[in-house]
Design a binder for these strands. Sequence first.
DNA 1: ATTATTTTTGCTCCCGCGAGCAAAATGCTC
DNA 2: GAGCATTTTGCTCGCGGGAGCAAAAATAAT
Lengths: 340, 340
Amino acid sequence: MPDEKKPAFAGNITADDVAAEAGVSRWTVNRAFRKDASISSKSLEKVRVAAERLGYVPDLRAASLASDRSNLVALLIDDFANPHKLVMMERLTRILRREGWDILLVNTLDRADAGHALLNASQRRVDAVILIGIQFDDDVLDTALHARRFRKLIIFARTSQNPNTISIAVDDVHAMKEIANYVHERGYRRPMFLAGPRTSSAHLLRKETFVDYWRQHFGNEPETVSVSAYDPSLAAGIVEDALGDRPRARLPDILVCENDALAIGATDVIRHKLGLRIPEDIAITGFDDVPQAEGANYRLTTYRQPLTDMAEYLVKVLGSEEDRDFDRLFAGKLMVRDSA
Amino acid sequence: MPDEKKPAFAGNITADDVAAEAGVSRWTVNRAFRKDASISSKSLEKVRVAAERLGYVPDLRAASLASDRSNLVALLIDDFANPHKLVMMERLTRILRREGWDILLVNTLDRADAGHALLNASQRRVDAVILIGIQFDDDVLDTALHARRFRKLIIFARTSQNPNTISIAVDDVHAMKEIANYVHERGYRRPMFLAGPRTSSAHLLRKETFVDYWRQHFGNEPETVSVSAYDPSLAAGIVEDALGDRPRARLPDILVCENDALAIGATDVIRHKLGLRIPEDIAITGFDDVPQAEGANYRLTTYRQPLTDMAEYLVKVLGSEEDRDFDRLFAGKLMVRDSA
DNA sequence: ATTATTTTTGCTCCCGCGAGCAAAATGCTC
DNA sequence: GAGCATTTTGCTCGCGGGAGCAAAAATAAT
């Protein structure tokens, strides 16, 4: 027994072993590891000691199989170029883990792949699926809901009209109106809206809201340009194409971006390719308030989503047994910095 | 039965149901969903049809329990401020999923939490644990290996001397020498090294290599400064403190950064707080080649890690039954841009 | 001390599938 | 078509633990 050079793979210690060691039954051992179980402090201690000595940890697969609750949620993401994703993941993983939820991370390559990704998650019998991607349109949602093996389908940081999903998001309409008013107040008159990809469901209402609101309240129709993904480098290309050869006078005076990923790409190209100053020559606003937005380089005026509150609400939804309408909108906060 | 308004939670269809529907035995049904199983194409088809109709998907928890292989790997991350993490996650998740591995994402809050994170993963009986964080020192690794319930402990994008771990990383020593030579060739003579946090294991050899190599080959001893996390905003603060009140003549002529996260923070503060030009007043190099490094704003000279190759190697390691020494170093590529 | 009540413990019967073997079906040779 | 090899199929048993109930032990009430 002294050849313990390399730590053994201890995958075979079961509750029975611990039970024998502690002199109790297997079920007492299992109870010792359950939150709600009724067990005397004496045998709890005995089990603890024995388990410690043997290096026992309960097998969550078996527990899940027997109890029909996995305490696992799938996180489906398809948009890794957007730096805000990193922030969302950090916040979600931290708060979910604190509440005892484990996370299955699934990279959803594209729309066609979304079904597979959901199937994938289903096979692990996750309790819920959280979508924080952009490529989940109605088709995908329908497929997901049709063959669903999970109890809740949550769309995070994006609204959805689908009655069978739960959406937790910031109030885009309210936010964009606030931004539009701010932009107008600061004297900008020729905004251009830089939008992301257009999907049919789980939609951001930002572009529509801004454009409609601006037209109704301030007269003219803003130009709009669309990027096929929330990727700064793609945004840079689109903005260069759109503005590169315009005479100075025909430039928009502000670029209102659907989110920070686009705003960052736009900022870079405006400064370094077009040689314009921000905000003197052209101003910029974003959305999300990613960490870089605050940095000395961008000083981006943007709209902060209350991610922590949203994540806290998410765990509350996960913990609830009811099936009522959980959709909820949160109010964010306009972060005024130097870019507009 | 026509009140199918809201898609049912189909969590209760089992292989037995499909077997009855298809007129075969349960085991044939299960075999139809296994890669290596021997089954006639006729019954495969029957099962397919029946499964499709009932909406059956095999339960991977049960499969895992019975086969003692979970096809799950845990990904432990503790450093969400570093934009490179997002790139690594994208690459790893994509390639792992392609090969049939699912990913349990665990946010490791701090050193003290690392043990819990590992325990967490253990309870799901993951086949392997992948560490791509920074706070995994020898203590943590020892604890992990002691109570391990997984077969492989892989340290990704970081070297480790621990004989019981598998490390897959870029050859930092080689890379830093290349960078040092490049820096010297380009005529820089007073480098300062901006380092990240110092941990005792799973170490980056970048600082040591650069400093020693520079001293030995080019005479003088480079200054070094250290940041407590790979966070651009922290780096910005440290750089401002270190260089803010120096007379121009005593500034380093180049800032060699341990990675891009630091380089980006440094760039921002040097330009916008210190009012210096890059590279004319002070040059900068990074490491990792994050997406932003290529953008018009930073044009950062940096060192690209061959993440795809590394991830491909990782899945090969995961698939291997052997327990031989899998440690491997990869050669990256110096990306010369405008910052140095 | 005795009975009633509550807490704790042990137990049966599952959960859904896989390993591995034996029985049945199929294919092949002559 | 008999005889044999090869697939294919069904089956027993077990993976590790949970729900829920009955037996046992501890505690409270009389």
